[in-house]
Design a protein around this nucleic acid. Structure first.
Lengths: 199, 199
DNA sequence: GTCTATACGCCGATAGAC
DNA sequence: GTCTATCGGCGTATAGAC
């Protein structure tokens, strides 16, 4: 029994190593510039063959990353929505999360913000149709209904707000801004919120 | 002489057709999902071979597009800077141009805003180091000096301003917003300008 | 200047020993 | 579950006729 468990865990660990290596390489060089050989090597495996023990093909690695990242984001957003009622506070929670992820897990944010997912995952939902982003639209809609946020197309509100947030984070991710994301959080939040708040 | 000229012009025309076809396909499916066969076909040529008459390889097609688009943008921005002195008016000119291009030449804007150029053109300058974008930073710096624009890191100002503009245009380009870009111009400009203007 | 035909290499993917 | 070996295919690129 113990042995069986060990084997299973070991398999799961290798899977995670592959996913982690792939995420890092995709973030660094893009999906198409990353070969399975690169991934295997970075995961500490000598051949591409062993990778197929864990994933059907290269695309499924990316697909699994997509699922993991959006699921985890979804859970975080549920959490944030549970913790406070006001749209402004919920959005603030999401911004805090994004800035934290940029500093602590830049590869994840690179995957979320910079990679063109539909280019190599054509059958997955476009980002705007995923659960977490539909929940963000709901938050915005609530804010509009409550008079907190300007009464314009929620998608446009989203574009204004996350245009500012994401673009600032992209500069951090690409190294164009030299400090940690956290250093720009307060000011960027204020600017983004003011852009959509009802005056 | 006339005949020679004709031949030369015909050659140039074919080149343009290849460039146009490539731009369209890159914008549609991305660089890596576009094969030379696709490009040749879309350009009305039956084989990839003829393409090599005009370009050394696939990357050089993209490189030529890069040069053409950024050169043209550079000229437009010089024009805009010449026409008015105030930073606000110059930025407004650039925004007008971007919205116009989104409606009239969406492929060009897709190339500028959405494609990850460094993924397939690693030896070209990153967008932020190109002439047109360095001129935008200069415009912002002038605005700060003149007291028109908030006195913060010009790159951050750029992120705030063009974060809003570009994100809104991306929604139009991807079809998430259903009207022409022009329909969102007035409001988006105001929001973006207010985000960076000194109050 | 465009065609037919073809070479070449890389990478994704499989078979089968251990 | 990972290794060695190898296949097949696609896409880039070239040679050479017309």
């Amino acid at each position: 029994m113990d042995q069986e468990k060990e084997i299973i865990q070991s398999k799961a660990e290798t899977q995670d190593e592959i996913l982690l290596a792939a995420l890092k390489l995709f973030a660094e060089k893009g999906y198409f510039n990353t070969s399975l050989t690169d991934i295997a090597e970075a995961a500490g495996i000598k051949n591409t063959s062993a990778v197929y023990q864990h994933f059907k093909n290269k695309q499924m690695i990316a697909s699994q990353l997509y699922t993991n990242i959006f699921d985890s984001l979804n859970i975080s957003i549920d959490d944030i929505r549970r913790r406070s009622q006001k749209s402004s506070e919920q959005l603030r929670g999401i911004v805090d999360l994004f800035f934290k992820l940029t500093d602590d897990a830049p590869d994840v944010m690179q995957f979320l913000l910079i990679l063109k997912l539909n280019e190599f995952l054509p059958e997955e939902k476009p980002v705007l149709e995923t659960d977490p982003f539909m929940k963000i639209i709901k938050i915005i809609q609530s804010g509009i209904n409550a008079g907190e946020i300007r009464n314009i197309n929620p998608f446009l509100v989203n574009a204004y707000f996350f245009g500012i947030i994401n673009h600032a984070l992209e500069l951090v991710l690409t190294g164009a801004l030299d400090k940690k994301a956290d250093a720009y959080l307060a000011q960027t939040w204020l600017t983004a919120w003011n852009a959509i708040a009802r005056k």
